[in-house]
Design a protein around this nucleic acid. Sequence first.
DNA 1: CTGTTAGCGCATTCAC
DNA 2: GTGAATGCGCTAACAG
Lengths: 334, 334
Amino acid sequence: MAATIKDIAKLAGVSTATVSRVLAHKTAFFSAATAQKVQAAAATLGYQKNTAAAELVTRQSHVIAAVVNSTKTNFASQIIEGIQAEAHRHDLNVIILYAGDADAEQQRRALMTVIERPVMGILLLSVDLAAENLTLLQQSQLPYCFLSISFDGERLPYITSDDWQVGYLATQALLDQGHRRIGLAGVDSDFHTGRLRVLGYTQALKNAGITAAPDWIQLGNYSYAAGQTAMRAYGAKTSLTAVVGASDMAAIGVMNQARDLGLAVPTDLSIIAIDGTELCSLVQPSLTSVSQNFYEMGIAGVQQLRAKEALPQKITPIQLVNRQSVRRLNGDRK
Amino acid sequence: MAATIKDIAKLAGVSTATVSRVLAHKTAFFSAATAQKVQAAAATLGYQKNTAAAELVTRQSHVIAAVVNSTKTNFASQIIEGIQAEAHRHDLNVIILYAGDADAEQQRRALMTVIERPVMGILLLSVDLAAENLTLLQQSQLPYCFLSISFDGERLPYITSDDWQVGYLATQALLDQGHRRIGLAGVDSDFHTGRLRVLGYTQALKNAGITAAPDWIQLGNYSYAAGQTAMRAYGAKTSLTAVVGASDMAAIGVMNQARDLGLAVPTDLSIIAIDGTELCSLVQPSLTSVSQNFYEMGIAGVQQLRAKEALPQKITPIQLVNRQSVRRLNGDRK
DNA sequence: CTGTTAGCGCATTCAC
DNA sequence: GTGAATGCGCTAACAG
């Protein structure tokens, strides 16, 4: 049986109120002498505070919950590091919940386990919540914010990159290297994020006087498999000279499939990835990418939770990182 | 202010005890009629149970805490999926804590946030705990079990692969393909896990009548960088024909560095990885590996926590998965 | 079947 | 400075 403040009160010969005070460092509410006794007693009893009980009475928690989907793309860890860094700065703790991959039931479990106990707020990393679970989240009254995902109609708080810019920048980078026939692979069109990227991509092409053929855009769920499928659809004799992978994983799928099709990267086909996680530097050739600032998203998420009033949607910066998967096309006319 | 059972008791015109009973589905302790009223009241109030309060009185929790280190290698997600699967099967919830990378302070934070509140047990995924934190863990009285890590002297509960076999099997696989000059890259010698792998490796060579030269074994921390460093140490003109990467990441580091050195894989150098995560199939050529059963570890971990008495250390199976990074050597004499 | 009582471990009035 | 008393939201006897 774990020791309680009652035990240490008895051992130290003081009241539980006093014990509570010294343990909470409510300075100026106790003498040095009693502090000594209490500390000593606590130590010998191996006392561990029951924070749950404390939170019950104070009605406030110091833990932030981060709900992540176990998606195949892996930027979550960068966001989490940002969250941890900022949280610790304010003496907050963070717990992480896995919500499965578009699995409503798992989402519900994850949400319930945090809603049912005291947390100061919930961060949802790239999880696209089922409608019923969104309701659950909202009626919990807890502060929350979505990270690395955006919404169109609904007015939900989120922090992410400017996905239109992401699509635009990736495409423009390819155009700048002389490419004119550019594919977009593995992007989702069911959600705002994907739609924006498509729009940015299309606009960049349009600005260059190019109209994307319908089959240039291969939809998918950002996964490795989606990238492979897209490349298979393009085929070995594709007229494309470059493709934008909707995520790092998708880009790798495209690249490996291209190789299986007999196309060398970047000699025969240039590839640019979106996300810019460490995966880009692991593969050969390393992938040029439009990199998102995931760490920053984590930090901003915590700040959002701490802020009294809900900020409007916030945008984190992106940047082009040149690596080896894009080749300058000769004979370009730009 | 969130609704409590008191509110719903008043609204339904019953006592809080009754409310508690129907909400806990203590069937046969209430009539259908009252159940209706209570359910209705709960619904209209948007009631959310405060599990923390409930756990305070029942003195038992239904959540398992998984502490992971944010190491560069990424098998954690597989273990976590195993944990979740088994946990949900028994109506347990799981929360995940990041403990940083060999950062004692972060470890302490992670441990404290779970020790200070009710959890039914703690699983530590490949985290090598600082001594003071191990003390913390032990005096918490909570059941715990280490996963994917083993110990020598101390009698700590753990579940992992047979690391001696891992080293042996990887090396033997290479020997079977005719290799005789085989390196081991990125392995740690400070901990039990690494030492066992080295022993298995050495024994396999010995059985083949081979003595490893000192520089065949390049120590490291299983990271990508460790793999690179090891390969740089071997050099472009190495006499080795194959190397065992101590982890997937280390193997990839070896492979990429080999390429930079002008060595083709597997033509000039064969590589086998230890771990067998999805990374192995992402890179080109894909990496042959000795794969661990991480999912199984997660399941076994939960079972261990649920078991009354601490089981002895448990071993999960491993298997050789052939991919493309190992080449059969001509002129072998086996 | 249901209400009353008590108490989980802790923080916080309010007196002294 | 310190103690006694109260209650956070909930469950568990114990009566009826």
